[in-house]
Write a protein that binds this DNA or RNA. Structure first.
Lengths: 224, 224
DNA sequence: GTTTGAAAGATTACACATAATTAATATTGG
DNA sequence: CCAATATTAATTATGTGTAATCTTTCAAAC
């Protein structure tokens, strides 16, 4: 097990590092392996410089988390992420995010808000790929300390699926600008500690994101 | 792999059958293994009449699903289900159930409602243990066909954790009666296809259940 | 074009070797 | 003599190789 990943690990959302589990999940999140791809144990063992069992165990864990689908005697594949998955994930996020955010509005510290502002500043000069990472960091920061860590984990997993689906689709500048503006509004409402306002912006933010991606991915679905 | 379980598998909530995964999960849900218990691979392999590797893989899958916690070089344990877990699980259910139920109210068929009524009838003469099973079946029936299978799976998992926590605590008759009444109200509101009414009863139903168990399990926590 | 059958490839389960942890025992200091 | 620590023994986890079984693939025959 002396494999070194070229690409950096999707920082905040993948806890464990330097494990086969993390490598595979990272490769799924970065669309190195895409929806439906076969995950052959021998190939993976070779790629990550280890034997079959550790790979099988990593795949089983990923199966439990929903990223991989295993058919008996037929092997593992990256789970099918299609249009319906996008809808499902967004609807779950739409339940979770207001719930997680509400706590943050009331309990966050000044330093949290300053960190968010720092991220916002970085966003303004970020490229497409950097932006996605900053966006993830922004929301991760707001949720990660929530008392309901089960819910946080749920959010994390759904967010990773989203990243996997979006990895090879570019974000257009109009949407980035709109998204930055929404983040700014969130921070502003946070300063006032106005729960209703924050949740309002959040709902709009998720809704817009959902609309954007569903439009995009429905097209790419129609093509393939 | 020729192990035969004495106790029947928690029927609807555990899909796979006759697998080590299902056996272990079933034993967790029935509190054969309780929160914090060490899950030693060799022991489990012996118990379920198989070798170590399949056990390890089952444990990894259960880890991914949150039922088992694995520490490097130190092995697997049943995840810690304590008072905070109860709160977390109930809050997640409180988000999920209205979401899942809303669809059912609008889309369910007459035969679904008849099945629910049949379950209700059985509830009225059920013992404590049977009641819990019927209650699970009731809600499973309402959710299992929802278009968002990711959400359904989420509900399933959280419900299993609840079952694991409640397995060795008895349900008192007052709560059973109250619970039956709530189910009756749900069916009634379903007949009218009145979303608001159903969600109202549901919120109360979950709330009451949460109150009941938190009171009970906080006591058992204080004792231990 | 469909079916059949053989060969290659992969999955699964098992046994073994090694490394780490846990426990049990002995030793030391107060 | 007791408590805390150190040492040793047992247990357990982890990773590798291998054999058997099942799938898939590909080519030949119908």
């Amino acid at each position: 097990m002396s494999y070194v990943e070229e690409q950096s690990v999707i920082s905040p959302l993948i806890n464990e590092e330097s494990t086969i589990y993390a490598y595979i999940l990272n490769d799924i999140a970065n669309a190195v392996f895409v929806s439906g791809d076969r995950l052959v144990t021998t190939k993976l063992a070779e790629k990550y410089q280890t034997s079959i069992n550790p790979v099988r165990e990593a795949l089983k864990q990923l199966q439990g988390e929903g990223f991989v689908t295993v058919s008996p005697n037929s092997g593992a594949r990256v789970s099918i992420f299609e249009y319906n998955t996008l809808r499902d994930v967004f609807e779950i996020l739409q339940l979770l995010e207001p719930y997680l955010m509400e706590w943050f509005v009331e309990e966050h510290l000044l330093e949290d808000r300053l960190e968010l502002k720092a991220l916002l500043t970085k966003m303004e000069t970020a490229t497409d790929l950097e932006y996605r990472n900053l966006d993830t960091q922004f929301h991760w920061l707001t949720y990660k300390n929530h008392y309901n860590q089960k819910a946080v984990d749920l959010w994390r997993r759904n967010r990773l699926i989203l990243l996997a689906m979006q990895a090879n689709v570019k974000l257009n500048t109009t949407r980035i600008k709109q998204s930055i503006e929404e983040h700014r509004e969130i921070i502003h409402a946070l300063e006032e500690r106005d729960v209703t306002a924050v949740l309002g912006v959040m709902a709009r933010h998720i809704g817009n994101s959902g609309k954007y991606w569903s439009r995009y991915l429905s097209v790419s679905n129609r093509i393939s």
